[in-house]
Amino acid sequence: MSESNDDQVTEKILNVAKKNPKGISDKDIAAAIPGLSSAELVTAINKLLQQGLFDIYNQGGSLIYRLKSQASKQAVKGADNEEKVVYNLIEEAGNKGIWIRDIRIRSNLANTQLTKVLKSLESKKVIKAVKCVNASKKKVYMLYNLEPDRSISGGAWYQDQDFESEFVEILNRQCLRFLQQRADKIKNNPRGPIVGRTQSYATAAEVQKYITDLGISKVKLEVEDVITILNTLVYDGKAESSVYPDGSKVYRSIESLITPPGLVQVPCGVCPLIHKCCSTGLITPQECKYMSEWLEQ
């Protein structure tokens, strides 16, 4: 059997495969290239597999060959077997990513080798490592061009896996402003306090619309996201939440039950040294700067 004959066969198989992007079986090949011996077929297929042009699947008992997409073929060009295995695992995981431990278990590669493979793939910009937001140490790998899933990236609150606290802060304030605008409706409402309270409530959807209209957010905020923010207001003690009969959550801005108490009006109440301040010694009320500054006002 000559080299050229071999090449012809592979060429033909490739052509068939190109026409059938869903994959081809042994039978399809046999039908397309009549007179091909099974031995020849096996060598050709093996060769193609070796070159990494084909993926091989098991479908209903028979083997299916499928041509790899151009990009991925390119990506692993010149890669060795280990890289391919790892690559495939990572590709499979999609935009959820895959944890290094899982790769190791499933690929059966030794730790050091695996790290090397991952490094090389990373340097080729084929894959990337993404930090999980809910487990800071955990890194997952995914294909370079993929957008990480919400559960990994943390959604709207994260930029490059960093928590955007300022953004949250601004939203928090804006939400509060919105709620405060209608908070007074409950006071002396001529139609009674229940109507008044209803008027002072805002549903999460309303708040979401307000925030979207403000245009302060580049990313699209879902109602869920806004609820998270509104909940921080509840924890801040600046709003209370309730549930409408139809199950939607509503929020109302409230004030603290008491005015700032005396303790926080005197410097000692906020003084970091209060537990070290004694009648004698270095820190005494008579010598205290905070006190004298406060009294100077």
């Binding site: 303790l263 005197v266 000692c268 109440g269 209060i274 301040c277 009320p285 008579q286 205290c288 006190m291």
Partner: peptide, 19 residues
Amino acid sequence: TVREMCYRALHNVISVGAH
């Protein structure tokens, strides 16, 4: 804890006044 802080603060305020 807060009551202790109140006592302390009260003590300090009174003693500054006395002083």
